[in-house]
């Protein structure tokens, strides 16, 4: 597909999906009413306007930003580790962030306080998630210098994920029932946790991370050739690596703190983008991955609210349904896929 065609149609699809997310839910709201609400006009029922503006719009925006963030985190990890099967969930970055959140929620009772400062609520969770994500990334980088095989590194990532999961289970065992309950709900993942009041911070944080990824486009292309070629082309490899990992850690941590540990979007979406573009050039792959991540997240959110009155399906029950087949397809067809060879 031509890059421009792809980006334009992806942008159009994103808009359509946002509208669908606004219209769909336990309360049926006609599409023309949704459009009227978006344009700031009065509609026949005031409650509709409230539902769309206060509940569905933040949720759609969260999906839009979280999807793009996780997908970009996956793409950056795949290029940084020279491994198309890397991703925040498979390398344990998600569960590291999850452990950080668990420590804050279960061990510290939801707030971090030191001499003179105090973080509470979501901000404390965010700090915990960031610390957890960065620690796991640090551990993985440490192992990457020891283990040369990409496959073995992935398995180490999975093992690190297991270790953090059992740490989380132990924390659960020793904590209060309410703590366990709220942590379990958080662990199911959903895009509805961000209120209109929290949206400006969440949007700023994710957009900053996404902007950071745009700044890394040129060195990312050089890194496709491996570190030595990149260094020879004039890339400051160490600085780029630090930038890549901070960017990945930040995006994963922000999304995980607010929406729970969401799997597969980071792993699968970069593949969809590269396969459809038939290119590895990051100047196209980066924006395409962002848009595709948003589309997939909006689509998953739509599936979550599909039962209507019966309730909401947990997000983490939906993302593997689309993500795992993509990865299996990629592995089965790897001989035919250019960027694998």
């Amino acid at each position: 597909m031509k890059p421009r065609t792809f980006l334009l149609s992806a942008a159009a699809l994103t808009l359509i999906l946002i509208l669908a997310n606004l219209a769909w839910g336990s309360v049926k709201i006609p599409l023309d009413a949704v459009i009227d609400i978006c344009l700031g006009q009065e509609v026949e029922k005031e409650s509709w306007s409230f539902i769309v503006v206060e509940s569905r719009l933040p949720q759609a925006l969260t999906a839009l930003l979280a999807g793009a963030s996780l997908a970009i985190a996956g793409l950056l990890l795949q290029t940084a580790f020279n491994n198309p099967l890397a991703g925040p969930s498979i390398l344990g970055v998600n569960s590291g962030a999850g452990l950080g959140v668990a420590v804050v929620m279960l061990l510290l009772g939801g707030s971090i306080s030191g001499n003179g400062f105090m973080l509470s609520g979501t901000l404390a969770m965010l700090a915990g998630a960031m610390a957890g994500a960065i620690v796991v990334l640090g551990v993985i980088i440490g192992f990457a210098s020891m283990v040369k095989s990409n496959l073995m590194l992935l398995i180490i990532g999975i093992m690190v994920g297991y270790i953090t999961s059992s740490a989380i289970s132990l924390l659960n065992f020793f904590s209060t029932t309410e703590g366990v309950f709220s942590y379990t709900i958080w662990g199911l993942g959903d895009f509805s946790g961000i209120s209109t009041g929290q949206m400006p911070f969440f949007a700023t944080a994710t957009l900053a991370g996404l902007f950071g990824a745009l700044l890394l486009i040129k060195p990312l292309n050089a890194l496709l050739l491996g570190e030595r070629y990149a260094a020879n082309l004039g890339v400051n490899v160490r600085l780029t690596r630090v930038g890549l990992l901070l960017c990945t850690g930040w995006l994963t941590a922000v999304v995980t703190a607010y929406c729970g540990p969401i799997s597969f979007i980071g792993l699968a979406v970069p593949h969809i983008a590269r396969l459809l573009l038939q290119s590895s050039d990051h100047r196209w792959v980066v924006p395409a991955t962002m848009l595709t991540g948003s589309i997939v997240a909006l689509l998953c959110n739509l599936l979550c609210v599909l039962p209507g009155d019966l309730g909401i399906i947990p997000l983490n029950a939906v993302t593997p349904l689309f993500g795992a087949p993509v990865i299996i397809y990629v592995i089965v067809n790897q001989r035919k896929i250019q960027y694998f060879n």
Partner: peptide
């Protein structure tokens, strides 16, 4: 150099 790379898609 002879180095493993991810550039097959370039």
């Amino acid at each position: 150099f002879t180095e493993k790379h991810l550039a097959g898609g370039l």
